[in-house]
Design a protein around this nucleic acid. Structure first.
Lengths: 197, 197
DNA sequence: CTAATTGTGCAACGTTCGATGCGGAATTAG
DNA sequence: CTAATTCCGCATCGAACGTTGCACAATTAG
């Protein structure tokens, strides 16, 4: 696999994981190249050689983050209700768990951006839109399958559960633990029958 | 009221309102002094003379924002349920309304901060904590008044409705209109009886 | 070996950041 | 009027920003 040239002096995957955690914790603009190189344990030049630019590094970090917990995987559940519950419960764990900064990177990492970095903000916004559409489609499918009543509104149900999901990121940032977030999920799921039947 | 010295050449209140809207829309660090002076129509020196520093200007902008829609006012409602409903409905309007940037300034304006600006992040976090305690106290009072069942957990109820409230800010940022947010509030309120009775 | 290729350390680039020194303009007080 | 006070335009400060040029190190290919 290795061609000619001097071999890289660090583990690219591990460096990327470090960068992901930093962006995840503080957001795109609040993390400087100096912060990154210090945490990754490499020089400025190595970062640019390996990742191209700050924005490209961020995009790769987001890809890594998403690959670990994509929304798509939950859509395969036998029922829409199961898909929603599994997603909410898994993320209640992840958002307040010990394996990363609190909250969701896609929700929190590009909330405050300067006009020059609109592309980064839009990247995450599009990921959220993609997830919203995915979830709505899953609910439409459930309706077609008779899981939801005729008067149920897939878009409205999606909005409600996404609102809860997004809110959990802020709560996690403010220090809520997994038990508290699971309680929030309990409450949110207790409306399911009212919303869809 | 006016003492000696050259009079200010601009309306301080209006300039503050402009700054508030800018911070509200993009967040503390993503708004530069240049952005501020351009939008406020004043020079750098005037900004510093009138407001002291960027951080002091931000704190004043937050005070102005909070004075318009403090959580405290909703606690006076006859029932806790009414307080929660009124707060959620008013903010569903405000978050997606035409009178300001989408979402809540207290939730969104200091999400991504550099280590040097932790004080700003903490300021908004403390405001959220204060609101949380206020709402919990209102629910405890309701429980003492018999409005809530014995098994109802004021802290858990607070967490649920704050999660919905916070999530609505992200939804507004992503383009949800007031009707959609009111639908989310409908769904959230339909859990009330399950949670507290 | 030489040639080619790639990674790294050092120093620096131009730009923007928040903030300020200074001198003059504009007002009130006496 | 003069003195005192406050505000403002201009120029600029040092620091930090993301990024890059360059020379050298370290490897593979032939």
């Amino acid at each position: 696999m290795s061609g000619p040239g001097r071999p890289r002096g660090f583990d690219r995957g591990e460096a990327l994981r470090t960068a992901m955690r930093l962006f995840w914790a503080r957001g795109y603009e609040a993390v400087s190249i100096t912060d990154l190189t210090a945490a990754m344990g490499i020089g400025t030049r190595s970062l640019y050689t390996a990742f191209g630019s700050k924005e490209l590094l961020f995009r790769e970090a987001v890809e890594l983050y998403e690959s670990a917990d994509a929304t798509a995987r939950y859509c395969d559940r036998p029922t829409a209700r199961q898909a929603v519950e599994d997603m909410l419960r898994a993320r209640a764990e992840s958002y307040a768990g010990p394996d990363g900064p609190p909250g969701c990177m896609v929700v929190l990492a590009a909330t405050n951006t300067s006009p020059g970095n609109d592309t980064v903000r839009d990247l995450l916004a599009e990921l959220r839109t993609r997830d919203r559409e995915m979830l709505t489609r899953r609910l439409v499918r459930a309706k077609a399958a008779g899981e939801l009543a005729d008067h149920a509104d897939p878009a409205a149900v999606t909005s409600f559960y996404l609102t809860v999901l997004y809110g959990m990121s802020i709560q996690a940032r403010d220090g809520s633990d997994t038990a508290t977030l699971q309680g929030v999920v309990d409450a949110a799921l207790s409306v399911w029958d009212v919303l869809v039947t």
